[in-house]
Computed example of a mutant assay.
Amino acid sequence: MDFDPFLLRAFVAVQSLGGFTRAAERLHLSQSAVSHQIRRLEEQVGVALLVRTTRSLTLTEDGEDFLRHAEQILRAQDALAQRFHRSPVTGAVRFGVPENFIGDRLPSLLARFARLFPAVRLDVTVDTYLALRAQVDGNALDLAVTLSLDGDQGADLLRQTRFVWAAAQGFDLAVHAPLPLAFAPKPCMHRQVGTDALDQAGIGWRMAFTSPSQRGLRAAVQAGLAITVLPQEDLELGMIVVDGRYGLPPLPDASFRLIWNVSGKTSAAEALAQLLAEMSAAPLEGH
């Protein structure tokens, strides 16, 4: 028995809105057309689904059971239509993102965007915060995720975070020894935040490990060779927060923000920004 989805929607609308008049308004049909659809549905089912009086409209026992199945069918149909909907959005988006912004979820974000907007060409650049900002300013990128200490005028907030001092669980600092640090080469925001805080606090330090690779820096920290500065959610297995230990000074709060090219926002870029905002609002796994 195949049910016409238009009849199912009419039935659900009548029940949810409490009558034929409001259902007709919702469906942009006449009241008589909605009544005719309900009669056709009841004839097809072979039982009464609604009990009508001059003052009320209620479901029969069969109607309650039918309603549950009808809603399931319509939800599945809507999901199917959404899944294979082909967006009219076209063009190209040049997008920049730091390696640590949304971790392992970046591939799924890009795959979802490609599925929803197949006519858009997406060019992705993974780089440091400062390099991405320079590329946006230089018209090499349409939009990019960066990390900001003070907030940017005109930049869209994606997620709040804070910097922490991170070390291995078994890290040990010798008495009177300068603090060993692990950072990327200059210019590096993590490096600047950490060394500026230490200098202001009068704490001696030395650069024990330098690498442009985030993986390399984390390996050095996990091995107990040095301490580093990270956004709190970037801590990995084997790392702990050591704020306040060894005389370490407090570090500032920060925020991930979306910066835009001054040439304007295209519909394709705005569609990507919406997906970024949705994913940023979801908590990262393990945090």
Score class of each variant (00 low, 15 high):
residue 7 L to D: 13
residue 9 R to T: 04
residue 15 Q to A: 15
residue 16 S to H: 10
residue 20 F to W: 08
residue 26 R to Q: 11
residue 27 L to I: 09
residue 34 V to P: 06
residue 38 I to C: 06
residue 45 V to H: 06
residue 46 G to Q: 04
residue 48 A to H: 05
residue 52 R to Q: 15
residue 53 T to F: 02
residue 54 T to Q: 13
residue 55 R to M: 10
residue 59 L to H: 08
residue 70 A to S: 13
residue 73 I to E: 10
residue 75 R to P: 02
residue 75 R to V: 10
residue 77 Q to P: 00
residue 82 Q to P: 02
residue 87 S to A: 07
residue 87 S to E: 04
residue 93 V to H: 09
residue 94 R to K: 05
residue 94 R to G: 00
residue 98 P to H: 02
residue 99 E to N: 13
residue 100 N to E: 14
residue 113 F to G: 03
residue 119 A to I: 07
residue 121 R to L: 14
residue 130 L to H: 03
residue 134 A to I: 00
residue 136 V to F: 00
residue 150 D to V: 01
residue 152 D to C: 08
residue 161 T to P: 01
residue 164 V to H: 06
residue 170 G to Q: 12
residue 172 D to G: 08
residue 174 A to M: 05
residue 174 A to I: 02
residue 186 K to F: 14
residue 201 A to K: 02
residue 212 P to V: 01
residue 220 A to V: 10
residue 222 Q to F: 01
residue 227 I to Q: 05
residue 231 P to T: 12
residue 231 P to W: 05
residue 233 E to C: 07
residue 234 D to T: 06
residue 238 G to L: 06
residue 239 M to H: 06
residue 242 V to N: 00
residue 244 G to C: 10
residue 245 R to Q: 14
residue 245 R to M: 10
residue 247 G to R: 03
residue 249 P to N: 03
residue 252 P to V: 08
residue 253 D to A: 15
residue 255 S to F: 03
residue 259 I to Q: 09
residue 260 W to G: 06
residue 260 W to M: 03
residue 261 N to G: 04
residue 267 S to C: 05
residue 270 E to S: 15
residue 281 A to C: 12
residue 281 A to N: 12
residue 282 A to V: 14
residue 283 P to H: 10
residue 285 E to C: 07
residue 286 G to T: 11
